[in-house]
Design a protein around this nucleic acid. Structure first.
Length: 210
DNA sequence: TGCCAGGCCCTCTTTAGGGCCTT
């Protein structure tokens, strides 16, 4: 039996909504998920020199003093890039984290090459009955464990990994897709929502004939 | 001075508007 390639589930805490407006990362966490299990973890605060607004400190608990004592961002990002290696990546609302991944790597003179899949898009397709697809709410809706303090990078990355593991399990057990790796996740998240059931059935049948 | 993210997705839509999701 072949093993699925590990997927790197990432979460950033930042000073704002987008690097396009000058926001910088304050903390990064990445967990490697393989065959439904977290097999490795990476977490670090990072120092960029950017000021953390008070409301962000209230949200995350990360203070200016905490990041002042953290290693420089370019060192952290080099280490993060080594940790991820050639793995594909997943985040909860990947449009947010993928931009910070690319921007913070660029500050360290590293080009981002990884693909991203998004657990928000996947959750909306697989669990349309959920009232909310925010990370905390969908984790509660599915009865998954809380991993620690919400809005800290490692806890949120672990919860997103639990969600991803559940998505992969449901793709196998409910939809009959034997190896729901990154390519399947990427295809499903791009599928128009009204066509999701048809896409899943076709993918199951294609997999069964291979 | 005025502006201030942006992609997804639903609907009382498509010549548009607004909520969701991330910090």
């Amino acid at each position: 039996m072949s093993r699925n390639e590990p997927i790197a589930v990432i979460d950033f805490e930042t000073t704002g909504m987008t690097p396009a407006q000058g926001a910088r990362a304050t903390e990064i966490a990445i967990v490697l998920l393989q065959d439904g299990q977290i097999v490795d973890r990476f977490q670090s605060l990072m120092r960029t020199g950017a000021r953390i607004p008070a409301f962000i400190t209230q949200l995350t608990g990360i203070t200016n003093a905490m990041v002042a004592g953290a290693p420089p961002a370019h060192d952290v990002m080099r280490e993060a890039a080594r940790f991820v290696g050639g793995a594909q990546m997943v985040a909860h609302n990947a449009s947010f984290d993928s931009k910070f991944w690319a921007a913070e790597l660029a500050h360290a003179d590293i080009r981002a090459t990884q693909g991203f899949a998004c657990t928000v898009l996947l959750s909306r397709r697989l669990y349309p009955q959920a009232r909310s697809h925010s990370l905390g709410n969908i984790v509660d809706h599915l009865g998954l464990p809380r991993a620690g303090r919400a809005h800290r990078a490692l806890a949120d990355a672990e919860m997103a990994a639990f969600l991803l593991a559940r998505i992969q399990r449901d793709l196998r057990e409910t939809w009959g897709i034997e190896e729901p790796g990154f390519e399947v996740l990427n295809g499903l998240q791009r599928c128009a929502r009204p066509a999701v059931a048809r896409w899943l059935a076709r993918h199951r049948d294609l997999g069964a004939t291979q």
